[in-house]
Design a protein around this nucleic acid. Structure first.
Length: 504
RNA sequence: GGCUCACUAGCUCAACUGGCAGAGCAAUUGACUCUUAAUCAAUGGGUUCAGGGUUCGAGUCCCUGGUGAGUCACCA
């Protein structure tokens, strides 16, 4: 490890402590309160009995001010901050000198004493004794904090995105709002579980390593099992396994876990991302639609304490019911094209050209429609909106609408111009399913990386009978982006994937 | 992968049309018994992302490469 000048100075302090027999990394701490508990205990005593509050507190030193025979510090733990007040009368000359010589910003310290208010009114621990809990050799990146009206204001905070993502520990250590994002993220996932658990759903775990990948259109990561001499794929969705469980009689199942897609990286794409899928027997996509808006507003209420979010400058209310727009009508409104009047790719291409819309050649009809949706319709869907009834050829696992074989019972949810979730009435006819798989194979013969491989075992499962089922999938990262108002997926994933560096 | 922009001290940022690489905080030394970006005095700190080129002279201009951000493509 190459040490900077600042680090060499701190290392020398550490070595001096060791030479004097003072452990810089003692094994155990003995704390009586968190910083918040200590402040609350003092305020309660102040309002009542006035009995002294003794406490032993621990935390990271975030500010340190020496002034002759007095010193002040703030320590921080996960519950907040408290000021430490060191007076030579209480700690003695020797310990006070040690504070000056051995302790730096970023060190972890344990301090015992009595809670009191300093002259400026700040609740503080008047320290009688203290010791090092863990020495920090590398200084924290943020320079200094200021407390203004109880709010911590940072000066010269760590802002460089690359450093923040590569050294997330440093980002978390100095940027409290980043810690808050991940508390919200945990609350979102807990609320999703609660919502589904309360409705009788069983949480399950299905394979991440799969011999045949499927359930979505994406390129997989490929890996290999040495002993089995078998090529395996990291899953791109949970769908095909979860629906096998419905065949097995588990009527309501869900899984929250990681999907892996070997695609480009962007502000809304990470190669691994967290997905929730649930399947509900005897439900159709309209019931799932209602459940979706209830679930999302429930989660917002639980994780944020309200149903209003602000994302990319738009403030929207998540309270049900959400807008419902048929995909055909939505596309007609923004492009003037009625997709039902163009049952094949060639006709749709012509209609697009007539209106001066750019057309990528050799795209199947479904892809063209998907393109129109993404380019022209999606950006307009600011208020929470369900688009429903999708073309069959981009939905190989969804059930056709009765009386309309070109359209399937499928919807997607959009908020603030971003796609959030995808759901449909599940195709449970094994004959139709096999035909769809074959169709997909043909349609993507040229770009066959994305086609759905034929999954014979899945067809066998369907052949044993799956009840009519509504299924649902949501990108949990996208949901967390929306709920925390963060425009980049990297802000809400602890360790987003970045390109490797030569020096690492 | 394409295009655009960025990369300077530990952190945040300056440095004009090419002309001695700077500030605040952090650090070091000292003063200071209620401070809170404490204050005051002094001091140290640079592979200007890397490599090459142009030039009397490059942080600045040119080329190649690296990483990031935005955007497009692909996808969710």
């Amino acid at each position: 490890m190459e040490l900077s000048d600042l680090e060499k100075i701190r290392l020398a302090k550490l070595q001096r402590m060791e030479a004097e027999g003072i452990p810089p990394f003692p094994t155990r701490a003995h704390l009586t309160h968190t910083t918040r508990q200590a402040i609350e205990a003092f305020e309660a005593a102040e309002a009542g009995s006035n009995t002294p509050v003794e406490a032993t507190l621990g935390g990271r030193i975030r500010s340190l001010r020496h002034m002759g025979k007095l010193s002040f510090a703030h320590i921080e733990d996960s519950t907040g901050r408290v000021q430490l007040f060191f007076r030579i009368n209480e700690v003695g000359e020797e310990l006070l000198a040690r504070l000056r010589e051995d302790f730096d910003l970023g060190d972890f310290v344990e301090a015992s004493g009595v809670m009191l208010r300093t002259r400026t009114g700040e609740v503080s621990l008047q320290v009688h004794s203290f010791r090092m809990l863990a020495k920090a050799i590398t200084p924290l990146p943020a320079a200094k904090d200021e407390v203004v009206n109880g709010e911590v204001v940072r000066h010269a905070a760590l802002t460089d995105p690359e450093t923040r993502y590569r050294q997330r520990y440093a980002d978390l250590a100095v940027n409290p709002e980043v810690r808050e994002i991940f508390r919200t993220r945990a609350a979102v996932i807990a609320a999703l579980r609660q919502f589904l658990d309360e409705r009788g759903f069983l949480e399950v775990e299905t394979p991440i390593l799969q011999p045949i990948y499927g359930g979505a259109a994406a390129r997989p990561f490929v890996t290999y099992h040495n002993q089995l001499k078998q090529q395996l794929y990291l899953r791109i969705s949970f769908e095909l396994y979860l629906k096998r469980l419905l065949v097995g009689g588990l009527d309501r199942v869900y899984e929250i876990g990681r999907d892996f897609r070997n695609e480009g990286i962007s502000f809304k794409h990470n190669p691994e991302f967290t997905q929730l899928e649930f399947y509900m027997a005897y439900a159709d996509y309209l019931q799932i639609m209602e459940m979706t808006e209830q679930m999302i507003s429930f989660v917002a209420e639980k994780a944020l304490g309200g149903r209003t979010i602000t994302f990319r400058g738009n403030t929207v209310d998540l309270t049900p019911p959400w807008k419902r727009v048929e995909l055909r009508q939505g596309l007609m409104d923004v492009t003037g094209i009625d997709i039902n009047a163009h049952p094949d790719a060639a006709s749709l291409e012509t209609a697009m050209r007539e209106r001066g819309l750019p057309v990528k050649p050799d795209q199947p009809r479904g892809k063209l429609i998907d393109g129109l949706l993404g380019d022209y319709l999606e950006p307009t869907l600011i208020e929470p909106t369900f688009l429903y009834n999708y073309p069959r050829d981009i939905s190989p696992l969804a059930k056709s609408m009765p009386g309309d074989p070109t359209t399937v019972e499928r919807f997607e949810g959009f908020i603030c111009g971003m796609e959030l979730c995808n759901a449909f009435t599940e195709l449970n006819d094994p004959i139709d399913q096999e035909a769809r798989f074959l169709e997909m194979g043909r349609a993507y013969e040229d770009a066959d990386e994305e086609r759905h491989p034929m999954d014979e075992d899945y067809l066998r499962a369907m052949a044993m009978g799956m009840p009519p089922t509504g299924g649902f999938g949501i990108g949990v990262d996208r949901l967390v982006m929306l709920l925390t108002g963060r425009p980049s997926i990297r802000e809400i994933i602890l360790f987003p994937h970045l390109r490797g560096r030569e020096d690492e």
